[in-house]
Computed example of a mutant assay.
Amino acid sequence: MASNNEDVKLFGIVESPFVSRVEIALKLKGVEYKYEVEKRGNLSDAVIQYNPVYKKIPVFVHNEKPISESLVILEYIDETWKQNPILPSDPYKKAQTRFWSKFIDESVDALRKVISTIDEKVREKGIEEIEEAFQILENELKDKFFGGDEIGIVDISAVIIAYWLPIIQEAFGFKLFTSHKFPKLYNWSQDFNNHSLVKETLPPRETLLAFYKGVYESVNASK
């Protein structure tokens, strides 16, 4: 656990999978932290001050030292609190986890395009790109988790696939991530979502579904 003389804060919003990444890592490590809730579209002066380059969440602050970008934050957490490691110690394996975490972020970029466009051709092309990426991940998944028998940084990075994507596709009415198309990846998502520490950290499903239905209505209103 974080000792009493450590000041750990996380600035974020409920709807963000990138914030959720950091929360899951902190839970797995048993680190106590204060969650500072931000308002979407109206970030606090503290966030702007702590992250003047990108001006976005998540922002992680440890003893008044700010860190931004979720994957960078995850590595910092792992190096600072040694218990329950989420990155392997072997340099090659560590490099591989960084590669796959970045690969997942690139897939997220494609998903962002899919849910922000009204152009059906652009959406279809984006879905094709995501399906190709998911097939690669399906082939890469060898154990219960990407981290082996225990959750690691790649699993945490993929929380958007495991938890957010099924909700997003329900809100938008497309079928991209199913047990039929990606059986190993789908089973992994169930194991990940039902992990006791992950489960207690994830935001309420109803909250996210309402949010993404609002996004869907907003996108379609611009037709």
Rank of each mutant, 00 (worst) to 15 (best):
M1T: 13
A2Y: 10
S3Y: 05
S3Q: 12
N5L: 14
E6F: 06
K9T: 08
F11K: 07
F11L: 15
G12R: 01
I13V: 14
I13R: 01
S20H: 01
V22H: 01
V22I: 08
E23R: 13
K27S: 11
G30R: 12
V31Y: 04
V31Q: 05
E36Y: 07
E36V: 15
R40V: 10
D45E: 15
A46L: 11
I48P: 04
Q49T: 13
Q49M: 08
N51K: 11
P52C: 12
Y54S: 09
K55V: 03
K56A: 04
I57K: 10
P58L: 10
P58S: 13
F60D: 06
N63R: 09
N63A: 08
E64K: 15
E64F: 11
P66H: 09
I67D: 08
S70A: 09
L74G: 05
I77N: 12
I77R: 12
I77T: 03
D78R: 08
T80N: 08
T80C: 09
W81R: 11
Q83W: 03
Q83T: 11
Q83F: 03
Q83D: 12
P85R: 14
S89R: 06
S89T: 10
P91Q: 10
K94G: 10
R98W: 08
W100M: 15
W100D: 14
K102P: 06
F103V: 13
D109H: 05
A110I: 07
A110Y: 12
L111Q: 08
L111V: 05
R112F: 11
K113S: 07
V114L: 04
V114I: 10
I118Q: 02
I118K: 03
D119I: 00
D119G: 00
V122W: 03
V122E: 15
E124C: 01
K125M: 00
G126P: 04
G126N: 01
I127T: 01
E128N: 08
E129I: 03
E129Q: 04
E129Y: 00
E131D: 06
E131T: 14
Q135F: 05
Q135D: 09
I136N: 11
L141Q: 15
K142C: 07
D143Y: 14
F145G: 09
F145Q: 10
F145M: 07
F145H: 13
F146G: 05
G152P: 02
V154Y: 01
I156C: 05
A158Q: 02
A158Y: 02
V159I: 15
Y163I: 00
Y163F: 07
W164H: 11
W164A: 04
L165E: 08
P166R: 00
P166F: 00
I167T: 13
I168V: 13
F174R: 06
K175Q: 12
F177V: 03
H180Y: 02
K181C: 06
P183V: 14
K184T: 01
Y186I: 01
W188Q: 03
D191Y: 13
N193T: 14
N194T: 13
S196W: 04
S196G: 00
V198N: 03
V198Y: 02
V198H: 02
P203C: 12
P204Y: 12
R205H: 14
L209H: 14
L209R: 15
F211M: 10
K213V: 10
V215H: 13
V215S: 12
Y216C: 11
E217Y: 09
E217V: 07
N220C: 05
N220K: 14
N220R: 13
A221V: 04
K223R: 15
K223C: 06
